[in-house]
Design a protein around this nucleic acid. Structure first.
Lengths: 196, 196
DNA sequence: ACCTGAACACCGTTCAAGT
DNA sequence: ACCTGAACACCGTTCAAGT
């Protein structure tokens, strides 16, 4: 039975997560120790471990907390039948990720951590599936104009969703390594590079 | 003055690197300790540290050793004036990376590690610039048919090279998270998604 | 229930001593 | 010069004790 309210507990977790992000952006995932987060948050080691079972769960919480509410906004467009091209959906997805406030470098570091840890990997696949469903929904009106039967529309929307996810991941990984690039430049260059 | 030949030293570094890759593919970057590499290689801690200053330099050596010789093959095509489309160059680049034998998951983990460590980050930018130059050279014949002046050709080749690099990074990050996908599927879906 | 901080196990790196 | 392996510093996690 919780002695404090759910809201207090959630606020505490957020407080720790926000302190963690501040240090993570400054020092990177590998160089950030629990001691750093202890210093930044003003709490103790035990306090952090009473809210998160380990560092991986904290990382997972950060990604989920910042990303999930925004994924749903993406999905909403498609379900209202508004026609968005894959380029539109890509643009929205990249704005969504930018709005989390997490730098591309930090996002790529989280991918790396998650891929090296079985428990985190499962959580990543979960988040990714959620995202893929949202993209598929957003692309369904567009797919409806390209394909005939309901099955074809669904298949086209699903495979295009994966491609849009790839493009977003490519943009993030690329800007993390090579530095910033305007989204419009990226999309324009993509179109020019792939026309026959 | 080296007591052993350069070849012996290089062979020793390769032996350590190959043992390291075996463990890394099995356990991931984060879960792999120097002790694991010691066990796998049959050498001692000190022996490894007499060939690499630290874990980051070992990781850097692995990427460089597996990737560099193959980047040059990529570049060679363009300098012979053979016309390759961006899709062709992307296909070749992805085969090149597949031929290194490193799994997409391990590549993404290396990006994450490099992005969190200043010394490794510098090395990553170096490798990436090398790669970008090779892609630019390979794309110059194609750019020659699209643009007029020499400057325009150079600018188009350079910006398209960055885009092709993004597409390759997107493919790698995407297959690392969601599982394998045929390169032809990816390219076909890209083209369909981006045509007006 | 939540929190404190000392204690523990483990890991990357160093270094005196050997060949 | 290359190698050995014990020693050291540091970090994630646990846990007995406090409120």
């Amino acid at each position: 039975m919780p002695r404090v309210s759910k809201e207090y507990r959630e606020a505490r977790r957020d407080e720790i997560a926000r302190a963690a992000v501040r240090v993570l952006e400054r020092k990177g995932v590998r160089e950030t120790s629990i001691a750093d987060i202890v210093d930044e948050s003003g709490l103790s080691t035990g306090a952090i471990y009473s809210h998160f079972t380990n560092k991986a769960e904290l990382a997972q919480y950060i990604v989920g907390r910042f990303l999930f509410p925004r994924i749903d906004e993406l999905e909403a467009g498609g379900s209202r039948g508004i026609m968005l091209t894959p380029a539109d959906v890509l643009g929205r997805m990249l704005s969504t990720i930018r709005d989390t406030g997490l730098s591309p470098a930090l996002v790529v570091q989280f991918w790396g951590e998650a891929l090296g840890d079985p428990a985190m990997h499962a959580q990543l696949v979960d988040t990714a599936s959620h995202l893929l469903r949202a993209l598929t929904a957003a692309l369904t009106p567009w797919a409806g104009r390209r394909a005939g039967s309901t099955e074809e529309v669904a298949a086209l929307a699903r495979s295009t969703a994966r491609t849009v996810a790839s493009l977003a991941q490519g943009y993030i990984a690329n800007t993390a390594v090579f530095g910033p690039r305007a989204v419009e430049d990226y999309v324009a260059s993509l179109t020019a590079a792939l026309e026959p």
